[in-house]
Write a protein that binds this DNA or RNA. Structure first.
Lengths: 208, 208
DNA sequence: CGATTCGTTGACGAAGTTCAAGCTGCGTGG
DNA sequence: CCACGCAGCTTGAACTTCGTCAACGAATCG
């Protein structure tokens, strides 16, 4: 797992560029967390597995996002949604932990985690499947969209496990939304927003 | 957690003991957060309100728990579930913000917030109403229970808004669970766990 | 002792899951 | 270059669960 730097070894904090194949595991829940990551290229999902076999996604990370900066062990596991390039940073040795810049990075990363978690909770707050999907599309547009075109790099199962639905309901609801001219589905991993006000209203982000 | 002396007021960081009536608002979402709190006696709920009018509880805080230590403004609002006594601490002025003990308190509080959020997400992971309620009972037993007796200080509406259900479903499911000899309901705010293995299995905390 | 708030219960319908089948796109091997 | 197989996506039908509407019971407080 932990792989030392290929070439120079001067500064222990210099990041490595690390590649992962689609579906690869970057780290697992409960593992020690000596390093942390920034997405360079591609998409990461963080998730948890429950005793009943159910999988719950807790968030997606896109280019520029920090992930994996937990206290000492990872609170969830991280997997590559697409082929992936990340920068891997090593944490300070214990004695130097409290340097301002480090603790700033730490609390920033914690806030990022928290924002992700609250985002997920907010999604469950929007209760029906169309509401959740509308909110999800707008969230994803923010991160991966261009004007009205949304890229959906994750598979339907990921979306379902993020929103707490089944892939069937996700699929059905998407086609329903396209029938209602809210969106237009352009292949499984791309869609266009046709009626932005309608979608925002459905997501509960407008007056009501 | 971090505990300063109760009486004298030399040190601006000495905490006040503050009382709140049941249902009182301690702070609201979006307010500046110059102070933070530790529950002395009673129960606090933190929640968010969405544009569609829906309320989502993000956690309960019991005696000893920290809450309200957000970056600069509160990410959710805090209300008294019961009559309440809290210790109120003032944050450091900006210049002194980075003292080790303070930043330890801050990241501890963030972690607490994060744990609460992940707890909420985990509850949504358990999908059916009986599963959520079983998990909720066990969580609450951990904090407020004695052996097999669980205290439920919050009202049904709070439970419903925490679990993403309606009060009707909460009520129906509880009586259902008592019919099945998993629990015994002893008034609206107290219940006894009759079949612990069964309850744990239902919550998905056992083999299956 | 009403009035109000909170909790329970029943009937019903809408929404989502399950089960089952079929479709599409893509990579592999003949 | 096409046939085949596989994985991911869609769709239909039956069924289950939960939310809604409505009414009633219980506790609390003036």
């Amino acid at each position: 797992m932990l792989k030392a730097s290929p070439r120079q070894r001067r500064d222990p904090r210099a990041p490595d560029l690390v590649h992962f194949r689609k579906s690869a595991t970057i780290y697992s829940e409960g593992e020690p967390a000596p390093t942390w990551f920034v997405v360079e290229q591609g998409v990461v999902r963080t998730c948890r597995f429950y005793a009943n076999g159910h999988r719950q996604l807790t968030g997606f990370r896109y280019a520029g996002d920090v992930f994996g900066y937990e206290d000492s062990i990872h609170v969830d596991c991280a997997e590559a949604v697409t082929d992936l390039v990340v920068r891997r940073y090593r944490k300070q040795p214990e004695g130097l932990e409290k340097q301002p810049e480090t603790s700033a990075a730490a609390s920033g990363a914690l806030r990022n985690l928290l924002d992700n978690a609250y985002g997920a909770i907010a999604l469950f707050g929007r209760r029906t499947a169309p509401e959740r999907l509308a909110a999800f599309m707008l969230m994803t547009l923010d991160r991966l969209g261009k004007s009205h075109d949304v890229e959906l790099p994750m598979c339907r199962t990921d979306i379902a496990d993020y929103l707490g639905l089944t892939i069937h309901t996700v699929s059905r609801t998407l086609t329903q939304m396209s029938r209602e001219r809210l969106i237009a589905i352009e292949g499984a991993h791309r869609c266009r927003i046709v009626d932005m006000p309608g979608l925002r209203a459905l997501a509960g982000m407008d007056d009501e």
